[in-house]
Write a protein that binds this DNA or RNA. Structure first.
Lengths: 153, 153
DNA sequence: CACTGATTATCAGTATACTGTCAATTTAGG
DNA sequence: CCTAAATTGACAGTATACTGATAATCAGTG
């Protein structure tokens, strides 16, 4: 009855695998060495400068532990700066560097091309519906996830 | 215009994250210690007994390096047996053990419950459409650019 | 049979991803 | 004010996931 290729779990894994591969191809072709995860972290930080690691993790639904390593690599590449918050000495506040902003702007066309390629097999109306179903399924399941996405402060 | 939460790439990552978390919850609640990847490997091996690692990897679109570690852990758990093929001494042919078959059958209800929970926020017709769009997008990406199979050198 | 090229699996290295635990610190409650 | 609870980020450990390199083996050709 249920082949694994009909299961949402397997399809999700396979689609994500393809999405990551396409992102890497487009980013590399454009001359950037940035992973999808690193890109989203930079993009969200541009919209919310000065947030700490936990807030950033909440905004993009990353695990608290995972985000530390991601930020380490972005800091090492010189794209992000990390400093201890004067208001809360536990927290590390984050800012984009000049290089980080330049990278974000430079990679934007490649990112958009990658998003289009991921759904290149679908009609435009199907793309819209695909995204709507993704968002609806995710919204319903978010309450039970250990990593719920939090709204911006 | 383009928020990261509208991008297929980010939605794919988020949905997959939720799918894995739900799978683990259901599997653990049923008393099994099996990851989604390990489950699919076992399930496909039941349908194709005696295949080698490369064939298994191809059937479920796993990386050939990754599959080695997955099989290592399944062999260590006693769920799978690995032996050198008499026809091709490079190849390792795989079989389910008795325990592997028992685990597969025992975990089946939990797996099905997990698949339902992943799309619990969607109407039944939406679930069907969601799966159809997944398959269509994946099929197009797979045949167009052979992602993530090896690129033509 | 020897040579070439392809295939099978492994290893090293890098990057997510999550669990559990811990120290430092802040906040809440009495 | 002072202690208990919560929060922040780190660490160790496990599991995917992919790239590039390598050894062993097989298949096809001359």
């Amino acid at each position: 009855m249920h082949d694994h290729s009909d299961m949402p779990g397997h399809l999700a894994r396979r689609f994500q695998q393809i999405a990551v591969a396409i992102f890497h191809e487009e980013a590399e072709a454009a001359g950037f060495d940035l992973t999808p995860v690193q890109y989203v972290a930079l993009a969200v930080l541009r919209q919310h400068p000065g947030i700490d690691q936990a807030t950033l993790a909440g905004l993009i639904a990353y695990d608290r532990t995972t985000i530390g390593g991601v930020i380490d690599r972005l800091v090492q590449k010189g794209l992000m700066a990390r400093a201890i918050s004067p208001k809360d000495r536990r927290a590390h506040v984050l800012h984009l560097t000049e290089a980080g902003l330049a990278t974000l702007e430079g990679i934007q066309p490649a990112v958009e091309a990658a998003q289009r390629r991921m759904v290149a097999g679908l009609e435009p109306a199907e793309v819209t519906e695909f995204i709507r179903l993704f968002r609806k399924a995710i919204a319903a399941a978010t309450e039970r996830s250990r990593v719920p996405a939090k709204p911006a402060p």
